[in-house]
């Protein structure tokens, strides 16, 4: 569990990046942080991992203030994937890269070697390949693998799909989603609303360092006021269903007006046709 208790933080004294943020993230949640650039999303991620100390308030990981934990202790519980894998990768081979965290945390033993072997097999890496010669998507996957190989209970992702093509993006998100289904808590900063709608269960909207909305993903995405204040563009299915309901009063309140996924929308269209509601033919 991660708790933000009245947290404020700043990179420069006069300009706070996060203001009085309070939030509790339970184990196993998949939370996405959204908002414009400079809204304070990445700062929240840094606070969760004690890469940045709060100027006010407190951040707790499993009940322990992050300020009381050393970097190596925190890294065992909280894995952090950065937007740019090249800031993370620093070893000569893929195997060394995967072993790196175990080595610096003093945990490189037989179990760690087994986990590394399993990860290599699962991702299909060449263990002797030079990381810097891999393509951008594979480097991002390697960076993700080197974070999750240590089995952290919480995974923080700061714009993990930037610069990736659609398939690479799906590959990264499928790995993250799998971890979440096995119980890992995921905190993700992302600008891709389609991706967020597909994976995140809870949405935190930030503007100018403040949390302006926090709740189930589609409740937030359907709130026009919040979307406007947070500069959010709802996913296409949500936008289409809202537009249909707005333009055809017969559809208001029907499942079609509440459809969040393509499957829900197709099902609702069939239902509307059968019941004769609205002007759908």
């Amino acid at each position: 569990m991660i708790e933000f208790q009245n947290v404020s933080a700043a990179y420069e004294v006069e300009t706070p990046a996060v203001r009085n943020a309070s939030l509790t993230i339970a184990d196993g949640e998949f939370v996405a942080f959204v908002g414009s650039n400079g809204a304070g999303k990445s700062t929240m991620m840094r606070l969760a991992n004690n890469l940045l100390a709060p100027t006010e308030g407190c951040v707790l990981v499993d009940g322990v203030p992050t300020s009381e934990l050393r970097a190596s202790q925190l890294a065992r519980h909280v894995g952090f994937l950065f937007q740019n894998p090249d800031r993370q990768i620093c070893c000569d081979t893929v195997r060394e890269e995967l072993e790196f965290a175990f080595r610096v945390q003093g945990r490189l033993d037989a179990r760690a070697a087994k986990l590394v072997d399993e990860t290599i097999e699962r991702f299909g890496f060449d263990p002797d390949a030079e990381p810097y010669l891999l393509n951008r998507g594979t480097r991002q996957l390697l960076a993700l693998a080197s974070v999750i190989v240590g089995e952290p209970t919480t995974l923080i992702l700061d714009e993990p799909t930037t610069g990736l093509d659609y398939l690479e993006c799906c590959e990264v998100m499928d790995v993250v989603s799998g971890l979440n289904q096995r119980g890992a808590t995921v905190l993700m900063v992302c600008h891709d609303m389609e991706l967020i709608a597909d994976y995140a269960k809870r949405l935190v909207v930030m503007t100018a360092g403040e949390i302006i909305a926090d709740g189930p993903t589609f409740d937030i995405l359907r709130d026009v006021d919040v979307c406007e204040r947070g500069n959010l563009e709802p996913p296409h299915v949500v936008a289409i269903s809202q537009r249909l309901a707005a333009e055809d009063s017969g559809l208001a309140g029907t499942p079609l007006a509440r459809a969040n996924t393509l499957d829900q929308m197709l099902e609702a269209i069939d239902g509307a046709r059968q019941t004769g509601k609205g002007n759908l033919r």
Binding site: G79, F80, Q88
Partner: peptide
């Protein structure tokens, strides 16, 4: 700035 980012990324991996 890059070095700062790299050190931050390594700190997140447990380097002290």
């Amino acid at each position: 700035n890059d070095m700062e980012g790299i050190m931050e990324a390594q700190t997140a991996r447990g380097v002290e």
